[in-house]
Design a protein around this nucleic acid. Sequence first.
DNA 1: TGCCAACGATGACAAAAGTCGATGTTTTAG
DNA 2: CTAAAACATCGACTTTTGTCATCGTTGGCA
Lengths: 189, 189
Amino acid sequence: MIAILRQHIIDRLGNDIDNLDLVLSHFEPVKTKRNQILVAQGEVCQYVYFIAKGCLQVYTYDQEANETTRDIVIEGTWCSELSSFGTGNPATENIRTIEPCELLAIDRQSFKKLVESVPQFDKVYKQILEASYNNSVYRINTFMTLTALERIKWLMQFRPKLMTRVSSKLIASYLGINKDVYSRLKAKL
Amino acid sequence: MIAILRQHIIDRLGNDIDNLDLVLSHFEPVKTKRNQILVAQGEVCQYVYFIAKGCLQVYTYDQEANETTRDIVIEGTWCSELSSFGTGNPATENIRTIEPCELLAIDRQSFKKLVESVPQFDKVYKQILEASYNNSVYRINTFMTLTALERIKWLMQFRPKLMTRVSSKLIASYLGINKDVYSRLKAKL
DNA sequence: TGCCAACGATGACAAAAGTCGATGTTTTAG
DNA sequence: CTAAAACATCGACTTTTGTCATCGTTGGCA
């Protein structure tokens, strides 16, 4: 499983990385069932995960247990509640496996040590942060204007595989529309 | 004007900062009129701005010239199109002054040099990035669920000064609702 | 394997948001 | 200072979105 992460890092930072094995040695493989809570809002996020296989939901919920899904993240990417992970403050979001997953987890202490001691790993962190930021900005600019129908078309164009991979309920919550509306509009395409 | 930036940095990183004067020497004071375009989508963002005084709009527009405002940023904070600034790719967002402004601008070359040569400045960059990211995540999680009325109440609670400082049209675009709807709902509070 | 809970689709209706045109008011360049 | 443009509000109307109840299907777990 580590091999996937090794390849991922080499793809981004090139082959000439000192200490790559040292870096990789801090990651722990984790296998999960579906519906496992990895991060709970209110608690400190202790790990950054690299998804080798599977699919995660990043979401919040309010008093009435209404869920909003900020992101659905699949294999080959990083996932964490970065704000909490970085500061040690309570997380504002939850992360849940929506499939059985194979993850590589690195804890806060190891992460901090690596960022400080391995300059190349500091770059990895910056890349994760920048990618996450760009993703969020894109999402705001895209979704704020789109109607329900346009959001569905966006999904079909840019993340078509999600539509068959995860439940309609989840998709609707990710698109920010009502599940009944999603069902109706989808039928009319 | 530089004094404001000096204070801002000291507030965040403490007083024992090497090279603070060197860092500050790379910032150029800029005074602008209102309605000045600082960054245009399609072009590379060349500066990061610290707002000493005034107010900026970060927005996108589509083919039909519909504007979406992702953020309204006021004095005491940083503003840039970070993705473009970092990579040199064309910007996807515009930045415009909505008041006469006093800004401190640092260009890409100087910025890169400082990030590499002054470890403390690297921390400044990380703080900007993390704050921007947290801001975006918060915005997604907040606005995706709220109705038009709830968004207005949110504004009144968390950014009340904006309501009198900038135009209703701009506020509406920031909240992601139609300006007529904003006008009507606001009247009923 | 079989049962139950969760899921997905759909019709009827309610509520919210958007559109458009008209009108009076502010702003702002010249 | 003034004319033109942009802005804010409002009523009437349309469209979109949300809600609720129902019903058949699916799929996960004991």
